Amino acid sequence: MTFLTRRSFLAGTASLSGLAVSGCVSGTAPLEPVPLSKDPAYLSMYAAMPAEDFPLPAIDLKKVPERFYRQQVDYRTQEKVGTLVVDTSRFHLYLVQEGGKAMRYGVGLGRAGFEWSGRARIARKAAWPKWTPPDEMIAREPELEKWSWRNGGMPPGLQNPLGARALYIFQGKKDTLYRLHGTAEYWTIGTAVSSGCVRLMNQDIIDLYGRVPVGSPIVVLS
């Protein structure tokens, strides 16, 4: 008959205990969620656009908060389908869709004192537009006179403040002088640094331009 010493018994118990514990431990670490800035769908959405008249570089999504990426969201509103709603408190623009949905875009807005709000309509659209600063802006920044309407405006291009597309906001037949437009300075989305217009990433304004016909209503919330 074989007798177990106290030492061999404890050693065997410890060995069995180790096996039991190790059997309860997963061999793989939990997966970390992939940030949207690395999501293939968003990388494709904001990829370079070499076929444009002025080829657009890709957006560096790490410089844009995820809440400002283009996406379809639930959106309850009394506004009719096809209406554009700019929520200035959240720096979002919504294109109202059917079924309680909306396409949501991140936007940049005007500095304090230059905001505009109200109801209007999209009276005109332009791809790679010229930019002509209004006389009120030139009065504040005289160096912009070289781009005035008297001098033909600034030609289109990557440095043009209106970016790849512009949608012109009118009230009745009156031009409000405010625009929905693109910007190459995508890192400013979600901030108030422009002189009043609503700016989107160039890839987003191109998407919006294709969805919004002339005559569409727009509401800019104060």
Rank of each mutant, 00 (worst) to 15 (best):
T2N: 10
T5Q: 07
R7T: 09
S8F: 15
A11S: 10
A14M: 11
L16Y: 14
S17G: 03
G18W: 14
G18Q: 11
A20W: 14
S22Y: 06
T28Y: 13
E32Y: 11
P33H: 13
P33Q: 13
L36F: 10
K38Y: 12
S44L: 11
S44K: 12
A47M: 01
A48G: 05
E52S: 12
P57T: 04
D74V: 09
Q78C: 10
V81Q: 14
V85K: 11
V86A: 06
L95K: 02
G106I: 00
G110Q: 00
R119C: 00
A120I: 09
R121L: 01
R124W: 04
T132K: 13
P134G: 14
I138Y: 02
A139N: 10
K146S: 13
S148V: 04
R150N: 08
N151M: 15
P155M: 10
L162N: 00
G172T: 06
K174S: 14
L177V: 13
L177I: 10
R179P: 03
A184E: 03
A184G: 04
W187G: 00
T188C: 06
G190L: 04
A192R: 06
S195P: 03
G196D: 01
C197M: 06
V198H: 03
N202S: 06
L208G: 02
V212P: 05
P217T: 10
P217N: 06
I218H: 02
